[in-house]
Amino acid sequence: MQIFVKGLTGKTTTLEVEPSDTIENVKAKIQDKTGLPPDQQRLIFAGKQLEDGRTLSDYNIQKESTLHIVWR
């Protein structure tokens, strides 16, 4: 499925993911596209910070959802 990651600059990155992907895995995909290391990424969805060990489905993140990224 496709999801979007929007940064503070307003730039949006598209990712191809599975609902079973962990947040850690998603951060690795973001690094592949942007070069930003996972330890500098904070992902937010529906006002919650996403924890590395959880999956996208744990947070009810579905296709075409938009996550927000904040740099540490």
Score class of each variant (00 low, 15 high):
1 M>R: 02
1 M>A: 02
3 I>Q: 01
3 I>R: 01
3 I>A: 01
4 F>N: 05
4 F>W: 07
4 F>M: 05
5 V>P: 01
8 L>C: 11
8 L>M: 12
8 L>P: 14
8 L>G: 08
9 T>N: 15
9 T>P: 12
10 G>A: 08
10 G>T: 07
10 G>R: 06
11 K>T: 11
13 T>P: 02
13 T>G: 04
13 T>Y: 15
14 T>M: 12
15 L>N: 01
15 L>V: 08
16 E>V: 12
17 V>E: 00
18 E>D: 11
18 E>A: 12
18 E>P: 03
19 P>M: 08
20 S>M: 10
20 S>E: 10
21 D>E: 10
21 D>P: 00
21 D>W: 11
21 D>F: 07
22 T>A: 04
23 I>R: 00
24 E>W: 15
24 E>L: 14
24 E>T: 07
25 N>C: 08
26 V>C: 03
26 V>W: 00
26 V>Y: 00
26 V>I: 11
28 A>E: 10
30 I>T: 02
30 I>V: 05
30 I>E: 00
31 Q>D: 03
31 Q>P: 02
31 Q>I: 03
31 Q>A: 14
32 D>A: 14
33 K>Q: 10
33 K>F: 11
33 K>H: 09
33 K>A: 14
33 K>C: 05
34 T>W: 15
34 T>C: 07
34 T>G: 04
35 G>V: 02
35 G>D: 04
36 L>G: 04
36 L>E: 04
37 P>H: 13
38 P>A: 15
38 P>C: 06
39 D>C: 09
40 Q>N: 10
40 Q>Y: 10
42 R>P: 02
42 R>W: 10
42 R>F: 13
42 R>N: 11
42 R>H: 13
42 R>Y: 13
43 L>T: 01
43 L>M: 03
43 L>F: 03
43 L>A: 02
44 I>P: 00
44 I>N: 05
46 A>P: 01
46 A>G: 11
46 A>M: 14
47 G>S: 05
47 G>Q: 04
48 K>S: 08
49 Q>V: 15
49 Q>N: 10
49 Q>M: 13
50 L>D: 00
51 E>D: 08
53 G>T: 09
54 R>L: 11
54 R>W: 11
54 R>S: 07
54 R>A: 08
54 R>H: 12
55 T>A: 06
57 S>V: 06
57 S>M: 10
57 S>E: 11
57 S>D: 08
58 D>S: 13
58 D>V: 03
58 D>H: 10
59 Y>V: 02
60 N>H: 10
61 I>C: 01
62 Q>N: 09
62 Q>E: 11
63 K>T: 12
63 K>D: 14
64 E>Q: 09
64 E>A: 09
64 E>V: 03
65 S>L: 03
66 T>I: 13
66 T>S: 05
67 L>S: 00
67 L>W: 01
67 L>Y: 01
69 I>H: 03
69 I>G: 03
70 V>M: 10
70 V>F: 13
71 W>H: 12
72 R>F: 14
72 R>L: 14
72 R>M: 14
72 R>S: 14
72 R>E: 14
